[in-house]
Simulated assay, not measured.
Amino acid sequence: MTTLPPLDGLTAVLAAIRAGSFTAAADELGLTHGAVSRRIQSVERWLGTPLFERHARGVRATPAGQRFAREVEQALATISQSAEHWRPRRELETVRISVVPSFAKLWLLPRLRALQGAPAELRIELLVEHRLVNLEGREADLAIRYGAGVWPGLRTHLLMRETLFPVAAADIAQRLGPRASAERIAQEPLLHDSDTTQWRAWLQSCGQRYRPRARDRRFEDYDLVLAAAEAGLGIALLRAPLAVSALASGRLVPVSDHVIHNKASHWIVTRADEDRSSVLRLIERMSSESS
């Protein structure tokens, strides 16, 4: 160790070369100007040659100082690479979310990077499926569920309430106009997923009765309902704010100004005893994104 230069002086030398002055180097390192000067002088004494030329606006590395700095940088890079090789890697904490495909596509994926943090502070693993996972059996850390918010034995956090109104592709919307009556809308093919409750509720609020017909179309996922509406296959109920991006892009256009509240909402569901900081932090971020 006696053959090595003063190690704390090496960082001072490199900082001064980068910054072009001892004062700026002191600011970078959180030291005083005098401390930086003393550390650099100790390295110069060890080498037996000056590393800097002083001038009115700061300092400039001598040719020897430039060569020495390059060699020090290479040596420090080698040490850093060796440390990275041997040091145990710090893995990001993983939070597993169970979510249905439509919600993953329409809401979660566009926000995934923001939810993980920048730079990433946690890793979100998506379990995209229709079945209800067993949270108590630790199949997932949390789930996004759609309904009234009551799941016995689990803790629920309200994520998003919705409103409903009918939308269609631009050509159909132009034909119907922006304030088509419920009776006129009901004459068009109605698009829905496996649950017709929302169409029943919207029509009933307008004094109309829902009657299933062969020309109506059923799809397994809500994002397919929206895609069918964009393709001009009929009229869908837009669930806002879940699918408002389709309005912003002009892919879908409202055909009525009659809006109702959806009885079902989106909920974040966890085990009753969930206390992992990463899970709780993710719940906070998701709630913030939905507000």
Rank of each mutant, 00 (worst) to 15 (best):
G117H: 10
S98D: 14
T49R: 04
F68M: 03
I40S: 05
V100R: 13
R60Q: 06
S42D: 08
L51R: 00
R45Q: 05
V36I: 07
V133S: 07
A64M: 03
V100W: 11
Q116E: 15
E136T: 09
A104V: 00
F103M: 15
P110S: 04
I124R: 07
E125V: 10
R123H: 14
H55V: 01
W107K: 00
L47S: 02
G48H: 02
Q81W: 14
A75D: 11
A120T: 15
S80T: 15
E93C: 11
A64T: 00
P50H: 02
V99F: 04
L76H: 11
R89K: 13
R113C: 04
V36M: 03
L112P: 05
V95E: 11
E53D: 03
L76Q: 12
R87H: 14
V59D: 03
R67L: 13
R57V: 01
Q116C: 12
F103L: 12
A114F: 09
R60T: 08
Q41R: 05
L106V: 06
V95R: 02
G48W: 01
A69K: 04
R131T: 11
W46E: 00
L135E: 01
S98L: 13
L115S: 05
R45W: 01
L132V: 14
H55L: 01
R45I: 04
V43L: 02
E44K: 05
V59N: 08
P63A: 08
Q66D: 13
L122Q: 08
E139Y: 07
R131I: 12
R123Y: 14
A114M: 10
E53V: 04
R60F: 05
H130I: 12
P88H: 06
W46S: 07
E129K: 12
N134T: 06
T94R: 14
R138K: 05
A83G: 10
R45Y: 02
V100H: 12
P101M: 12
E84S: 12
E53P: 05
A83N: 13
E121T: 15
E84V: 10
H55R: 06
R60I: 05
V36P: 03
Q66I: 13
L122C: 12
E91Q: 13
S37D: 01
E84P: 01
G58M: 03
L106K: 04
R138M: 10
E44H: 05
G137R: 09
E136S: 08
L126M: 12
R90I: 09
L127H: 03
L112G: 09
L47T: 01
S80Y: 11
H130P: 14
W86H: 15
A104M: 00
I124D: 10
I97R: 07
K105T: 13
A56G: 07
H130F: 14
L47C: 06
T78K: 15
G48R: 05
R96K: 09
L92W: 09
E136L: 09
V99H: 07
W86T: 10
V99C: 04
L132A: 14
V72S: 07
P119N: 13
G65A: 01
A61H: 04
Q116V: 06
V43K: 03
H55W: 00
G58W: 01
T49H: 01
E136G: 11
R60W: 03
A118N: 15
E139C: 10
W46G: 04
G117Q: 11
T78A: 15
R67Y: 07
R39M: 02
